[in-house]
Design a protein around this nucleic acid. Structure first.
Lengths: 226, 226
DNA sequence: ATATGTGAACCATTTCACAGCA
DNA sequence: TGCTGTGAAATGGTTCACATAT
């Protein structure tokens, strides 16, 4: 479950990458507050998790700290930015401009990671040609042409489940190498394409089950939650 | 990372619960297609994953199959429904009726799991008193009263990060036992409350990183993706 | 003295291999 | 025989403990 990123010499667990991105985002806030040097212990209080985990996670990307001292915030940010490739701006497209797609087109948080939504796609005449949150919606049939021009790297799929597989194939043939799929179906994609699933029903359903079960018998293992 | 569900005698990994919910949802479709009995091998072709994993996942909840035969679809559905507690309808609230919150209020997929959004909450006068997707929006200050009446079990938080911690506390004091948090901050909650985070930036950022890295050097482990 | 970086130990989950039933 | 159910082995990630550097 979950792929692993093996570049150069080290294999980075996918969850470590998620945590590192979060560290990067949250450490930028510390910089804005004027903090200059911080230890993994103090970081753990702010970021959550254990100092050891933070050190291990950071060490997947390089040696950014000074022994006996801690981490210099400014250089930590630069290093994370470079190693996580967040210094290079990325474009993303949203395919399926329903309520969820529109919300994602207007989602402000992506810009913290230097990602912008560069276009939306739909087949609905009511939406094609219009703009939402300043982002133009094109007809799905012109996806290749538009992608050639705007050069997005990843796609967000928020179409109905029934058409998601077909849409993913069109997206891939337009050159997209990563798909974030919100449709409630498992997409099968060629192995060179990365895919992540965000299945809202399952997230809510799993949460509900967990809260129901642990409400009855108070007996579960505690740790940092996902 | 990730809690574990320990009820009765068995401990079920949280990811197994997610998969089981997905199985339930997808197996209902098989029933509609008229299939009556199916083997774990055939199931794996449809649901993804290995037959062994499906058998193991199902066995966390009970013994639903017949050796030498396979699983009776109808009884499998009933058993999953009961064990996953999806036979009892659940109410959920959405706190923060921005674009994302509205999209979640109108999300059709929850009903497959017998979950309905019973109310929205916001502090914006423009939204309070109105209805979206047939669901009424109340002022956050009346959350206790409204929750007492509608008795929701879980909450979806889709407010700005700056107020998410405070909002989570109000939600918990209204009796909510599970929170699905879309705000890009880690919430700290009492141990009896379940919390899951859906951090859209991090999902998209991790996907982008993975697709960028594996695009350069083709070297990663393949398996069923998350 | 203090805090990092990391191999080794540990632990959870997935996979395997086969015992147990129809 | 065929397919499920499940202990046991393997895998992979997190935690620990200490060597290392300032």
């Amino acid at each position: 479950m979950g792929r692993k990123i093996c570049s150069e010499k080290t294999c980075i667990p996918i969850d470590a990458i998620r945590r590192l991105i979060r560290y990067y985002r949250d450490i930028k806030v510390l910089h804005d507050k004027g903090i200059e040097v911080i230890s993994s212990f103090d970081l753990s209080e702010i970021l959550g998790g254990s100092p050891e985990q933070i050190r291990k996670d950071l060490s997947y990307l390089g040696e950014f700290g000074k022994r006996g001292v801690g981490y210099n915030i400014k250089s930590l940010i630069t290093n994370l930015e470079n190693r996580l490739r967040l210094n290079v701006p990325a474009g993303a497209i949203v395919v399926g401009v329903g309520r969820l797609g529109m919300a994602l087109m207007g989602y402000a948080g992506f810009k913290n990671l230097n990602i912008s939504i560069v276009a939306g796609f739909d087949v609905d005449k009511e939406k094609v040609g219009k703009s939402f949150s300043g982002i133009r919606v094109y007809h799905l049939r012109s996806i290749k042409k538009v992608c050639k021009r705007l050069d997005p790297e990843v796609a967000i799929i928020s179409v109905p489940g029934e058409v998601a597989q077909e849409v993913s194939e069109r997206v891939i043939s337009a050159g997209i190498k990563g798909i974030l799929n919100f449709a409630p179906v498992r997409l099968s994609v060629p192995s060179e394409v990365w895919i992540s699933h965000v299945d809202l029903s399952i997230e809510l359903g799993a949460l509900l089950f967990c809260s129901r079960v642990s409400g009855v018998d108070e007996d579960r293992k505690s740790s940092t939650s996902s």
